[in-house]
C-alpha cells in the first residue's frame, strides 16, 4: 500500500504545508526585496521601475578608487572581520564544551542536565543579555573598578565597552551555544569503540582528537558555522548597542537606510549581503557534505 501511494499525489500533499510556509514567509518576501532593489526613490516615495542605479550607488566608485577602500568595502571588511573572529572563538569554545559534554561526562543523566543548563540564558531576550554586559564593562563598571582597586591600572580601561572588543565578546557570549548544539549532536553519534580502536592503534589524546573526533564532527561544525556566520553577518543590534553606534556593519547600513525610508537602496544592500552570505555557505558546503549525515 505504501509503495503505491509513493507515486501518487499524497506525498506532495504531505509536503505542502511546509512548502507553503516557506513560500509565504521566505520566498515571497525575498522576491519583494529583489524587486524593490530595482525601483527608484526620492525623498517622499518609492516608485516601480527597473534601474540598476541602487546597485551602482552601493558600489559607488568602489572599483575606481582601489586600493583605497570605499565605504561599502570598508563596512564589509569590518563585518567579515567580526564574523571571522566570532567564528573562530565560538568554534573553539563550542567544540570544547561539546567535547566535554559528549566524552568527558560519563553519565547520560548528567549530560542532559548540563546540556539543559546551557539553555538557561535563552530564557531572557538577546537584548537583555547584551546590555547586561554594560554595567560590567563600562568606565565605572565592575571590571574597571576591580582593576583600579587592585592597582593594575590608574585610568579606567577605555576599550572594554563600545569597542570591537565588547562587540566580539557579546557575539561570542550570545552565539557559542549555536555551535555547541550541532557539534554535540555529531559527537554523540561517534561510536565509542572507534576511540578505543584508535587508542589500541597507539594514538595519543591529541591524535585521537585530530584524526577521529574532528573529522567525525565535521557535519556539526559546518552546521554550527553556518548558524554563527549568517547571524553575525546580518546583525545590527549587537554592533549598534555594544559598539556605541560607532562601529559600521552591513546590517546597520541597511537599518539606517530603512530609517530614512530609502527602501530600494536598502533592498539592494540586502541582496548584496545575501549573495555574500550564500557564497560563504556554499564554500562551507564544498568542504563538508552535510547531507551525508542529515
Amino acid at each position: 500500500m505504501a509503495a503505491t501511494n509513493r507515486t501518487g499525489i499524497v506525498p506532495y500533499l504531505q509536503a505542502a504545508p511546509l512548502a507553503l510556509v516557506f513560500l509565504l514567509f521566505l520566498v515571497v518576501p525575498l522576491a519583494f526585496i529583489v524587486v524593490v532593489s530595482f525601483w527608484t526613490y526620492d525623498n517622499y516615495q518609492i516608485q516601480p521601475a527597473f534601474t540598476v542605479q541602487n546597485y551602482a550607488d552601493v558600489f559607488d566608485r568602489c572599483i575606481a578608487r582601489l586600493p583605497t577602500l570605499c565605504t561599502t568595502f570598508r563596512t564589509y571588511v569590518s563585518t567579515l572581520g567580526f564574523a571571522l573572529r566570532v567564528w573562530v572563538l565560538t568554534l573553539l569554545i563550542g567544540f570544547a564544551i561539546a567535547y566535554f559534554l559528549a566524552f568527558e561526562v560519563r553519565s547520560k543523566a548528567i549530560q542532559s542536565v548540563l546540556f539543559l543548563i546551557c539553555t538557561i540564558p535563552f530564557w531572557t531576550s538577546n537584548v537583555i543579555r547584551m546590555i547586561s554586559w554594560i554595567p560590567l564593562l563600562g568606565r565605572e563598571g565592575l571590571v574597571n573598578r576591580t582593576l583600579m582597586g587592585l592597582g593594575v591600572v590608574d585610568q579606567p580601561v577605555e576599550w572594554l565597552l563600545y569597542s570591537g572588543f565588547s562587540v566580539t565578546l557579546t557575539f561570542v557570549h550570545l552565539f557559542t551555544f549555536f555551535m555547541v548544539v550541532p557539534i554535540y549532536n555529531s559527537m554523540l553519534r561517534i561510536d565509542r569503540s572507534l576511540i578505543e580502536a584508535a587508542r589500541d592503534a597507539g594514538a595519543s589524546g591529541w591524535q585521537i582528537l585530530w584524526n577521529v573526533v574532528v573529522p567525525l564532527s565535521k557535519t556539526g561544525i559546518a552546521i554550527g558555522s553556518i548558524f554563527v556566520l549568517t547571524i553575525v553577518m546580518g546583525d545590527f543590534v549587537t554592533v549598534g548597542l555594544m559598539g556605541g553606534q560607532q562601529i559600521a556593519s552591513v546590517g546597520k547600513t541597511i537599518q539606517t537606510e530603512i530609517s530614512y525610508l530609502q527602501f530600494p537602496i536598502a533592498a539592494a544592500n540586502a541582496v548584496v549581503l545575501l549573495a555574500t552570505v550564500l557564497l560563504i555557505v556554499f564554500a562551507l558546503l564544498r568542504v563538508v557534505d552535510i547531507r551525508k549525515e542529515l
Binding site: 561510536d191 569503540s193 572507534l194 578505543e196 580502536a197 584508535a198 589500541d200 577521529v212 573529522p215
Partner: peptide, 12 residues
C-alpha cells in the same frame, strides 16, 4: 592488538 566486535572501522 585488538579486533573489535563491531570492527570499529573509521568510517571517514
Amino acid at each position: 592488538a585488538m579486533m573489535f566486535q563491531s570492527y570499529a572501522l573509521f568510517p571517514h
